[in-house]
């Protein structure tokens, strides 16, 4: 009465039914009772480090590294990548910037194993840090006192030193480009005073970095000195795409010639 085909399908369906009941039971048992690991973690096979001619760029730091304010979402890091690619350089680019990161936060991030591994493989390290330390989300704007600034500065320099030590402990050769601060508030009421603070901050940062010959301090202060509002995003703090372009051009010009590519 029933065709062979249907008989076969029914039988097979019954078999799959048993299989899934088994799977369900297994899942429930595993979830409720728990088992010991049945698989072993793979032996850590270090991937061959990317081909020699590839330039590995690691970007660290705060919202500027992330690219906040750029409608294209690239930030100076993305534009540097684009510029290098255009020149025919083979790059790999990883952006580890986190919005709102301060120097203690970055020092902490450095301790992560994978971050260390990424930095270890890098030829070029890009970094923006300190902006959030100094501006505290706009607070410093209303309260500029010598003492509080010096306190912030000292803490920052200690953290910066720790960060550089962490980087050098995993990577001795990479060039580190630290982008300096600019004054987003120069057209505000006590803008002139803040500009002075930013210049002092940049100066001390540069001096500190100079202890390590493999680092380059890249000033950005001058880029935003005139017509600051043309280069700032609507939040009056982060650069816009034009501002990021300017920063990127400056850094990209310095990177050329690094990493095996003449």
């Amino acid at each position: 009465m029933h065709s062979k085909k249907v008989r076969w399908i029914t039988g097979f369906a019954a078999f799959t039914c048993l299989l899934w009941v088994f799977g369900l039971g297994w899942a429930v048992k595993d979830y409720l009772i728990g088992t010991t690991s049945t698989a072993t973690a793979p032996s850590v096979s270090e991937q061959p480090i990317a081909a020699v001619e590839q330039v590995k760029i690691v970007a660290l730091g705060d919202s500027l590294t992330r690219g906040t304010g750029d409608i294209e979402g690239k930030g100076y890091v993305g534009y540097i990548g684009d510029m290098l690619k255009q020149k025919g350089t083979d790059i790999s680019l990883i952006n580890l910037g986190i919005k709102g990161l301060t120097s203690p936060g970055l020092a902490e991030q450095m301790q992560e194993k994978e971050i260390g591994r990424q930095i270890g493989q890098a030829n070029v390290i890009l970094m923006t840090i300190g902006g959030n330390d100094l501006f505290l989300g706009g607070q410093t704007l209303s309260d500029v006192s010598e003492a509080s600034i010096t306190g912030l500065e000292d803490a920052f320099l200690i953290n910066l030193k720790a960060i550089m030590t962490s980087i050098r402990s995993v990577n001795k050769d990479a060039t580190v480009y630290l982008l300096g601060l600019y004054n987003p508030f120069s057209e505000f009421e006590n803008g002139a005073l803040l500009s002075e603070v930013v210049r002092g901050w940049n100066y001390k940062t540069a001096e500190q970095l100079a202890e390590d010959p493999g680092t380059v301090f890249v000033p950005t202060y001058d880029l935003f000195q005139k017509n600051v509002n043309d280069y700032l995003f609507t939040d009056h703090f982060h650069p816009n795409e034009k501002g990021y372009q300017l920063m990127a051009e400056r850094v990209a010009a310095l990177i050329t010639g690094v990493g095996g590519q003449s």
Binding site: L19, G23, W26, D30, T35, T36, T38, A39, A41
Partner: peptide
């Protein structure tokens, strides 16, 4: 814990 992927898929 670690399980092999095939086990995980059946579950």
């Amino acid at each position: 814990r670690l399980v092999s992927q095939w086990q995980y898929i059946i579950q």
